[in-house]
Amino acid sequence: MKTSLSFHKVIVGLLVIYLVIPLAATLLFSVAGKWDHTILPESFTMKWYIELFHDERFYGALQHTLFLIFVTVGLGVVIMLPTIFIITVYFSKWEGWLQTVAMLPYGIPPIVGAVGLIKVYSNGPLPITGTPWILVGAYFITILPFMYQGIRNSLRTVNAVQLVDAAELLGATKFQAFRTVVFPNIISGILVSTLLSVALLFSEFAFANLLVGGRFETIQIYLADKLNSSGHLTSAIVITYYSIILLVTGTVLKLTFKKDKVPSPSSKKRSVFFINKPFRQKNTALEGENS
């Protein structure tokens, strides 16, 4: 038993080291001054960060990326949430079709998708190639699998069909049933889908480079550009962008689970974010019942 536990600890430790080392090295390189012949840097400096934070282009690229993420993920939630809910609860026979459509992005490499999009949207009724709007459309499709899986799994976990049945029998309209019963119970699922999408879009390069390039510079395009000038500076960009993702994720999780007095069944397992107070009320169970 003891050996088995130690073995597990070693495996987890190795995994953590494997994941953390590249990030730690990048962090170290971003604050390194002279680092040529030694294992650790000979001197430390913040000049790469100072240089980065004095660059107007960085703020512009960050702003563009955040704008694209906000619009795309927002659209994704607004369009996909009711769609998946309606199909899961009321038209379950069409679920297979929706699943196929949602999984399509996995089957189309970005380069193929980008070439197709450029051809279709270069002229004709909707000439949006080179504008951020073509990226919004492409990104919407890119995050579809995450949105679909996260929301559908949450709906199934809470047994949305039966919750809606129960609410309707108690006098709720379909919309009231969704708003008061289903939605509060799938927030955690929506949040997970949203965060996965944000993380994915933050690091998306292929579509951004091929569809708009420098005309609407995103953080990844800016990063690629800086790769040729200085490794220290690109390390500072990577660390900054990781910090922003961590900050956004942490804030959203904290705000959501702080409001959530009691975890929904789907969030119960993720007790790392939520600790229940012990339940001390008097038990009124029938003979044989456990509470």
């Binding site: 809470v158 047994n159 039966q162 919750l163 049945d165 129960a166 609410a167 019963v181 509060p184 119970n185 009691v262 929904s264 069944p265």
Partner: peptide, 10 residues
Amino acid sequence: VFQSYALFPN
């Protein structure tokens, strides 16, 4: 009353 209760978890 449903077999799986269908109580509202929230």
